[in-house]
Write a protein that binds this DNA or RNA. Structure first.
Length: 526
RNA sequence: GUCCCCGUAGCUCAGUUGGAUAGAGCGUUGCCCUGCGGAGGCAAAGGUCGCAGGUUCGAAUCCUGCCGGGGACGCCA
């Protein structure tokens, strides 16, 4: 719609001008500032706007007028009707598009040493919303979860389960400084006793088999958490452990490119040559590769798979890590510009005004599952998706339980349910009003319809900027416009009943599709 | 000390590659159902957009420097 307008202006200005939303509704649907073009043509902006005005008049526009240095445009009913039919014909396929870009999106990638906590949920929901929106508008997105199933943390997981099992069996246990706490460890320990038998835990030491078993169990839990959050299932699960066999090969490439040197018996990556503060160890004195080595192999593996773009969603606490990974990618001979790292900031959870504290190691973090059980996945998704992912977010779980307007997910759902209720009462469906011609639209009708038809641009905008919250806020706006309209204008029994039903059908379809792309179910009734 | 995020109404936050009189929800106050879902709507009140410069027709938005809040800076992963 916007594109069509831009094309009409292009004929007269030589290029597609910015098409803005006017600040005031009475100015029209679109506003085109012509200051820039007036300057090029050395004319007064006000005069120039008037000139352009005369040139762009056509049947697509009901009215075009110059105000100051702006050209304001009102779209014709015919134009709006055409797009409405498109919405009703295409239904859930509306605003679909095609793109050439292939994207590998890696997100969550939480350590398989415990269930997902609320911070992970934010990244999960953010990633899933991006995936849904991106796929809808045609990006070829592959989703991936990187499983950190190697290293010290996995050992610690095994140790924690081992000691917990000993304690259950009545042995005296000396807990080390660092271990995993929480009920889930005890649950794992109980199960481990059944699987590995009591004898196993009478020994002094445990083997890797216990760690790996516990890791697999945790991974199953994480998969359940992901499901509980209604996240689209991942395409790939990549194991860190399985990558180390390529280390020699990757190391050879790094050496060839002069990325490594030896010092103090360790091998270092010259990451400081690329914006990192200092060089980083990749192989320890004892020959064991560090976590960074694993990540270098992983990104080598990713880039070898040949995607156009790579997106990683990381917790904000990893931001210091970006420079070294990008440096490594450069040393491997790939283009680090293709890797985009999005950070999801901390979530501060409140309950009744009191702050919750989160800690990964301690047992007092907030489990995703608990919150989902408490408020539901939809409400949680909605609240996370109303804010930018890279800013701190604070919310009170009590707010999400409220079934009133203070809870935005109810507000939007209510608008949808209200529309569905109208059609239910009438005993008809959206299709039944598809062929109604929209003519002589009132200002209210136009405003509501026009807003609903913005969805395609909102989707592009939300994805390109990696900001799915733009879609969420759009839906809140649309719901609000609808409520206003409905309060003011009678639908059933009105002389414009058919036209209004068609408009509501469009709004209802858009609300449903928008919610779907956020991974939220649009309710028929509440 | 270095790096990242943030600073907009009492609170939580939007503000679309710089555009017209800066927005929403909550909270406060007052209204609106013989009208289809009042789980709504309308109105009032509430702002030096952290501060100071700069860029230009034009800045909450871009640049620089300060101030304030949060976070990260391992041979942990």
């Amino acid at each position: 719609m916007k594109k069509k307008v831009a094309e009409i202006f292009k004929k007269h200005l030589g290029e597609e001008p910015p098409i803005n939303k006017p600040k005031q509704k009475d100015f029209g649907h679109y506003a085109v500032p012509v200051f820039k073009y007036a300057k090029i043509n050395k004319k007064n902006p006000v005069e120039f706007a008037k000139e352009i005005c005369e040139k762009v008049k056509c049947e697509e526009f009901e009215n075009v007028e110059a105000v100051g240095g702006f050209v304001n445009i009102k779209l014709s009913d015919k134009f709006l009707d055409e797009f409405s039919n498109k919405v009703l014909d295409e239904k859930e396929n509306f605003a679909k598009s095609t793109k050439d870009e292939s994207i590998l999106l890696e997100y969550i990638s939480a350590n398989p040493t415990g269930p997902l906590h609320i911070g992970h949920a934010r990244g999960a929901i953010f990633g899933d919303a991006l995936t849904r929106i991106g796929r809808h508008i045609g990006y070829k997105i592959t989703t991936e979860y990187y499983v950190n199933d190697a290293g010290r943390q996995i050992y610690l997981l095994g140790l924690s389960v081992f000691l917990a099992a000993k304690e259950i069996l009545g042995f005296e246990v000396n807990w080390p400084e660092e271990y995993y706490k929480g009920e889930y460890i005890k649950d794992l320990a109980k199960e481990a006793i059944e699987v590995f038998k009591e004898e196993y835990f009478k020994k002094e030491k445990f083997g890797e088999e216990l760690s790996l078993w516990a890791k697999d169990k945790m991974l199953e839990e994480i998969k359940k958490d992901i499901q509980a959050l209604k996240v689209t299932p991942f395409d790939n699960w990549v194991s860190e452990r399985s990558l180390y066999k390529y280390w020699d090969e990757v190391r050879a490439i790094l050496e060839k490119n002069g990325a490594l040197y030896e010092k103090d018996g360790k091998i270092w990556l010259k990451s400081s040559e690329f914006k990192d503060e200092k060089d980083r160890v990749v192989v320890r004195e004892d020959g064991r590769p560090t976590y960074l080595a694993g990540d270098i192999i992983y990104h080598w593996d990713k880039f070898k798979r040949g995607y156009d773009r790579y997106i990683n969603i990381w917790g904000a606490d990893h931001h210091g890590y970006i420079a070294r990974v990008k440096a490594a990618i450069k040393f491997l001979g790939f283009d680090p510009e293709k890797l985009e790292i999005l950070l999801s900031q901390m979530v501060k959870l409140l309950k009744g005004g009191e702050p919750y504290k989160m800690s990964k190691r301690a047992g007092n973090f907030i489990l995703v599952r608990d919150v989902v059980d408490d408020v539901g996945a939809d409400a949680l998704r909605f609240i996370f998706l109303t804010k930018k992912a890279d800013t701190h977010l604070e919310f009170d779980v009590e707010e999400l339980k409220k079934e009133d307007s203070s809870n935005p997910s109810y507000y939007v759902n209510y608008a949808h349910a209200r529309i569905r209720s109208i059609f239910r009462n009438k005993g008809i469906e959206y299709d039944d009003v598809r062929d109604v011609k929209l003519t002589n639209l009132t200002q209210d009708e136009k405003d509501l319809l026009f807003l609903a038809l913005q969805l395609p641009y909102v989707l592009e905008d939300a994805f390109v900027n990696r900001e799915p919250h733009r879609l969420t806020n759009f839906l809140i706006d649309l719901a609000s416009e609808f409520h206003k309209f409905y309060n003011k204008n009678k639908v059933i029994g009105s002389e414009r009943e058919k036209e209004r039903l068609k408009i509501l059908a469009v709004v209802g379809s858009i609300l449903k599709l928008g919610l779907f792309l956020l991974g939220i179910e649009a309710k028929e009734r509440m």
